[in-house]
Design a protein around this nucleic acid. Structure first.
Lengths: 205, 205
DNA sequence: AGGCTGTGTTAACGCGGTTAACCGACGGCG
DNA sequence: CGCCGTCGGTTAACCGCGTTAACACAGCCT
């Protein structure tokens, strides 16, 4: 029943920590449910007893958030890559939105943990204001600034970016939470919302 | 410690059921956390032992959803009342959006349970497609139809309403989940998003 | 060599949802 | 009138959860 148990680490400090993060991410993806990822399950997969986890993470929330945060680092890189491929600012904006939604749908449980959870359950390292200064949001502000430069707008890019974020989040989170609602195809939905905002915000026809 | 224990019901069938619903709602509002509302806590407040709950509800999820669903019935009534007060269709639309967001912020935990939870955790009686045919969403479709009638639009109201829902949900859920993000005032946010959609969708200046 | 630190263990606590088994009171029926 | 089923509660218990305390053993520093 426990053949991989005889696993034991020596003076290797952060090796197990890494394994724990990997195992947690795997479990999160496999089960697709935050609740199914128990400390005991993670420990079992790594081949270690549950309290060992606490030598490397203060509590379950921090572990989960660190895993999701790693995934979101990849989102940031993905966004950068996507935007580098589009010359037109408005095309960049739409590509950006689509990449955001796609990412959320590809990692639904991670998205839920980071953006659909209780505020007081989030560790200090992932406070709301930290998020506002983080890569993905700032990247969005940059794109909006570019679009505003091309099309002209009197409103400040940060406010526009905030609204756009709520729009993309609205799509993403509802698709995750209510997948059986009679949605139109995701592509259409995103394109429509982006177009609506472009027209509504920059008065473009 | 347990003076209200000697409570006991006779042939009153659904009386206790009602008490359980009330106690659950109270607890949900007081604690503001789904997790704090344990079966044991509810039972204790009603003055009954935990297994008694299961004579009236199949499991905790169903109990919680029934409570939230009751609150949302009130949202429907509230929406109706709000919309009856506005003559102008576009004003009705904005009032509708504001009422939706306000409701979510006033009942954050209920909103989270109904619209920010896992899809497979929701009882059958609250499936996604049931929601699409329910009062509040249909009310929105009606308003959109009115606006489209006033301003003219070639797109179908149902698609427009869906987009508007995602927009209002985006605002509501992010405000709930990330209250410390540097948001603009809620009123401004809602007004801005509504205006943007009106311009972007109906081409109104 | 001796002790400190870092990293794992075993054992246990308390709480959670939920189930099984029992049990008394009420209402209908022979 | 007395039996009996069902309704609506009880007590006891199961099992999994996050987490903590106490302990143990390795290797490095002095």
């Amino acid at each position: 029943m426990t053949p991989p148990r005889p696993r034991s680490a020596r003076g290797d400090g952060p090796a197990l920590r890494h394994e724990i993060l990997d195992a947690t991410e795997d479990l999160l993806i496999e089960t697709g449910s935050e609740d199914a990822v128990s400390i005991r399950a993670v420990a079992g997969r790594v081949g270690v007893t549950p309290p060992a986890i606490y030598r490397h993470f203060p509590d379950k929330q921090s572990l989960l958030f660190e895993v999701c945060s790693l995934q979101f680092t990849r989102l940031g890189e993905h966004l950068d890559a996507v935007m580098a491929m589009e010359a037109d600012a408005t095309a960049r904006l739409e590509a950006c939105g689509r990449a955001y939604v796609d990412f959320g749908l590809a990692h639904p449980e991670a998205y839920r943990i980071m953006f659909m959870g209780r505020s007081d359950g989030t560790p200090d390292a992932h406070r709301d204001d930290v998020l506002a200064a983080a890569g993905p949001f700032m990247a969005l502000v940059d794109v909006v600034t570019d679009v505003a430069g091309e099309l002209g707008s009197e409103r400040e890019p940060l406010a526009i970016a905030t609204v756009l974020w709520t729009a993309m989040h609205g799509i993403t989170s509802l698709l995750i939470s209510k997948p059986n609602f009679p949605w139109p195809p995701v592509d259409e939905l995103v394109a429509e919302v982006c177009a609506t905002h472009l027209r509504g915000t920059f008065g473009q026809e």
